[in-house]
């Protein structure tokens, strides 16, 4: 059986330019097969502009990795559509389509795309329609676990079709919600339009706890993430059997080289690795987070 591929998901946080560039130049040496680049959360984050991301993709492609340009999950302004159009027009990379605007622009230009986790695909028929539009790989949304994927695959095969390449979020904080509002700006009591790009001070997001002090969520600009860094490593035998082709690792501020090395070893081993993050409840058909309190 083919070894699973490893991908670096798009950087969800906002890091200074030099830190971001240094991170990706290091990543070019890591045993990952695919790297997703680009801003998926907030169009005001411009330490790297569209031109920089495209140039970085070209530079890193020389390392032999597949480069994919990721699109914003929530597009509201004309200027944001303009950025998306430039990513699609670049033509050198596949696009990770994180909303329907990206699907449509890829479809109009005939550019292959990866359906990102914030695009809603829940069944075999929707998947087939999007494959007609140019979908080549699918990253299921966070709430889709083993049973749903098994049923979906059975339905695809029963229709006499083939599955696209499947990529699962194997490591990282789960993206849970997006809003027009910036929650980082709200927490710091500044207006979104004069935010001062303060999310740059929180390279792993801003922690939100319950009133009894239990860590709960992460605020990341207009995005809300779960607090826990989930880890599907221990499920690798099942993922392999399910035909998962790519394991997505979301960049965190520290220790990513070790995380990649851990999964690189694990994908080559017949026995599952020990867990290095939290159990992902969604995968087991349960709430995404670990049971709280006395449960």
């Amino acid at each position: 059986m083919d070894t699973m591929k490893l991908s670096l998901g798009p950087l969800q946080y906002f890091w200074p330019r030099e830190r971001t560039l240094a991170f990706y130049r290091e990543a070019a040496q890591w045993p990952v097969d695919i790297i997703y680049l680009g801003e998926t959360v907030c169009s005001k984050r411009r330490e790297l502009g569209t031109r920089d991301w495209i140039a970085l993709a070209a530079e890193l492609a020389a390392s032999g990795k597949q480069m994919v340009l990721s699109s914003l999950a929530l597009i509201e302004a004309e200027s944001e559509l303009g950025v998306l159009q430039r990513l699609v027009d670049d033509g050198h990379c596949w696009i990770e389509a994180n909303d329907l605007s990206a699907v449509q622009l890829c479809r109009e230009r005939g550019v292959p795309f990866v359906a990102g986790p914030s695009l809603n695909i829940y069944n075999h028929h929707a998947l087939a329609l999007l494959m007609e539009d140019g979908l080549r790989r699918w990253v299921p949304g966070v709430e889709q676990g083993e049973v749903l994927l098994r049923e979906l695959r059975a339905a695809v095969l029963a229709d006499g079709r083939t599955m696209p390449e499947l990529e699962l979020i194997a490591f990282g904080r789960l993206p849970l919600a997006y809003s027009a509002r910036c929650f980082t700006a709200r927490a710091l009591d500044v207006a979104k339009d004069q935010c001062g790009f303060r999310c740059i001070d929180y390279p792993d997001g801003l922690p939100l706890a319950t009133r009894e002090g239990k860590p709960f969520l992460r605020i990341n600009g207009i995005q809300i993430q779960g607090e826990e860094i989930t880890d599907l490593g221990p499920e690798l035998p099942v993922l392999r059997e399910l035909g998962i082709g790519v394991l997505r690792l979301y960049p965190q501020a520290e220790g990513m080289a070790e995380v990649v090395a851990h999964f690189d070893l694990a994908r080559r081993s017949p026995t599952p690795p020990p867990h290095i993050g939290a159990r992902n409840g969604y995968w087991h058909g349960e709430p995404g987070m670990r049971p709280a309190g006395g449960a």
Binding site: A73, L74, S118, N120, Y122, G141, V142, E143, L174, L176, A177, Y178, S179, A180, R181, L217, I224, G226, G281, Y282, G285, E286, P287, G288, M289, A292
Partner: peptide, 19 residues
């Protein structure tokens, strides 16, 4: 306040989601 159709806060806590 979240983009409708793309909010998993309820399912993260309870397993039951709007979608």
């Amino acid at each position: 306040i979240m983009v409708e159709g793309r909010c998993q806060l309820s399912s993260y806590v309870t397993g039951a989601s709007p979608n």
